[in-house]
């Protein structure tokens, strides 16, 4: 079943393709079945591209185009983050950034019966799975895995959700672990849920960690693996310095011709005193300075 003779798909696989590219020539590969995913179409013997993105191939015979965009095109078995928009008697209406609202049947929960229907107010964030995505129909979601278990699906409490491109969320889910998450995860403790529809949810004990992680992820959109690591490490270094503020005992300042001089009395751990690039970042509330 493997395509042997055709040279063209091999050259295109994992490369950027644009609409109109003919990636597979069927006339050269008879006696084979191939499966086409999103972004590809068949014109007689030619398989041509409909979207700009990277052509992917999975053994034995699946081809699809991976794109990065703001809008999500629902696809079966994707796990996504949805926002409850409305609830009807047998369905919740969920926004998954797609062209149409998705339906989440009220019974699609672990052990769901007519008696224990969950209550979600509008604006609740859910981690769900797409089970049906047919053209011309609203997609259908489920809060259980294939075997009917809850398996992490369901409402997400607290934390912060932000939107990104579908490409970025795919990068965050890729294995081995995305460098930015790996670097951040070594120093900070946080929970993260990534939806393939370009939504990411982050939770942690302190809001500042959430903000740091969220911004680091958003900044890593166009960075390579190494750059992501450097960026995350720089960020962590900065945070350490902020933590130092806890050691400051007293602080005096004098204002001389619009410039402010600080005198800081701090009790520092001896290890830190030796650090060469030691600097203190002081957060001043501009409100206080003004008044």
């Amino acid at each position: 079943m493997e395509c042997k003779s055709s040279g063209s798909p091999v050259t295109f696989v994992d490369n950027v393709v644009v609409p109109g590219d003919v990636v597979v020539d069927l006339s050269s590969m008879t006696n084979q079945t191939i499966k086409l995913g999103g972004g590809l179409r068949q014109d007689c013997d030619a398989i041509s591209v409909m979207k700009a993105g990277k052509l992917r191939f999975s053994k034995p015979n699946k081809y699809w185009v991976e794109t990065s965009q703001k809008r999500y095109v629902p696809c079966v078995e994707d796990s996504v983050l949805g926002i409850v928009v409305d609830s009807k008697s047998d369905n919740f209406l969920i926004d998954i950034k797609g062209p149409a609202l998705a339906f989440l049947p009220v019974l699609a929960f672990e052990g769901g019966t007519r008696r224990n229907i969950p209550k979600f107010e509008a604006g609740t964030l859910l981690y769900v799975r797409v089970v049906k995505a047919n053209p011309g129909m609203n997609p259908e979601l489920s809060c259980t895995d294939a075997s009917g278990k809850a398996a992490e699906f369901g409402a997400l409490k607290d934390g912060y959700m932000f939107e990104c491109s579908t490409g970025l969320s795919r990068m965050l889910l890729s294995s081995p672990t995305c460098p930015v998450l790996e670097a951040l995860g070594k120093k900070l403790s946080f929970e993260i849920a990534v939806g393939l529809n370009g939504r990411v949810w982050v939770n942690s004990n302190s809001p500042s960690i959430v903000i740091i992680v969220a911004n680091a992820i958003m900044n890593s959109e166009s960075l390579s693996g190494v750059q992501q690591k450097i960026m995350a490490e720089k960020l962590l270094h900065k945070i350490q310095l902020i933590v130092l503020e806890g050691y400051i005992l007293d602080c005096k300042w004098t204002i001389v011709e619009e410039s402010v001089t600080f005198e800081i009395f701090a009790h520092l751990p001896s290890a830190l005193k030796d650090a060469q690039d030691f600097e203190l970042r002081i957060r001043i509330d501009p409100l206080q300075v003004l008044l």
């Binding site: 926002i83 409305d86 149409a100 609202l101 604006g123 609203n138 409490k157 607290d158 912060y160």
Partner: peptide, 17 residues
């Protein structure tokens, strides 16, 4: 349906955060 999809809604989580 279309209008519901177009109105952008903030999640409860974001608001609280």
């Amino acid at each position: 349906d279309g209008r519901l999809a177009n109105t952008w809604k903030l999640t409860v989580n974001e608001k609280k955060f």
